[in-house]
Write a protein that binds this DNA or RNA. Sequence first.
DNA 1: TATTGTTATACTCTATAACTATA
DNA 2: TATAGTTATAGAGTATAACAATA
Lengths: 162, 162
Amino acid sequence: MPAVKPDLETRLAEDHHQAIKLWLRLLTCTNLITGQIRTRLREHFQTTLPRFDLLAQLERHPEGLKMSELSKRMMVTTGNVTGITDQLEAEGLVRREPDPQDRRAFTVKLTPLGRQVFARMAQEHEGWVIELFEGLSSSEKEQMYTLLGKLKTHLNGKEARR
Amino acid sequence: MPAVKPDLETRLAEDHHQAIKLWLRLLTCTNLITGQIRTRLREHFQTTLPRFDLLAQLERHPEGLKMSELSKRMMVTTGNVTGITDQLEAEGLVRREPDPQDRRAFTVKLTPLGRQVFARMAQEHEGWVIELFEGLSSSEKEQMYTLLGKLKTHLNGKEARR
DNA sequence: TATTGTTATACTCTATAACTATA
DNA sequence: TATAGTTATAGAGTATAACAATA
């Protein structure tokens, strides 16, 4: 039906192309979701998304991560990682372990308490996320996960190559 | 090959399920991308992501949007929309038009300058985004766009129902 | 009374850069 | 000299709530 106009709500000027449309939509979805998650993390756990993200990074890396690695993974400066780590350490959720090979460096790890607290947060969090993502079927979520995996690999590759 | 361990880099504890894995990956990708885009928007255009997002919302709605609509779409409070709109209005990129039907309300629109500036930003921006997304093929980007569309519809539906 | 938008305030995150200690 | 991480500071976004004008 060539006579049907594109949906106004999602229409973009003709000179915008695939990648930017994708990015704008990704940005919109992410803002909608992060807004929800941020509110609920604050109300239920008195915490924030960057703090949650840092814990999640550590949960996936039981061997711990250097401050600089966290900085790269989270795309923020080491100064900012210091601040977030300070807060989490004050709450007893993470600890800095001195690096025996390099006395300037630390390895940041979850404490047992941190692992426990993150597990609880992650569990409740999962309920919210299931709700927010229930517009997609299981196989669609799987597809999206796979696509994001490719994207992530590419982005990490760019990062590593700098 | 059932004997092969899952990739450490992407492995999650067994009790994490599909939606949360998807969300954590989405969050990681988004952080990596927004970090890049934020830096470049600042360096090239002395602007920020929320400001860019607001302009992008208006670009997709030539008829203009109410402050409250912007607030909903961007998932931030009306107070914050006021602040961002003030900045953009001071730069001459948007303007508030009084609503003839409701003298409390405004319709925010792009000015011709705003449309021009956004077009320039969007063009350069597109180059960055193409680069950041080049880990995906054209058809993969299309798939992801479609999936995000479904997700967005669901999220907006939730919002509208509140 | 309820709603639209503004204002004020406090807190967090982010960016920049100077700095210390170590490599 | 270069690197890992800290500290200090300023700027921006965000949350909360009180407020004015209008519905």
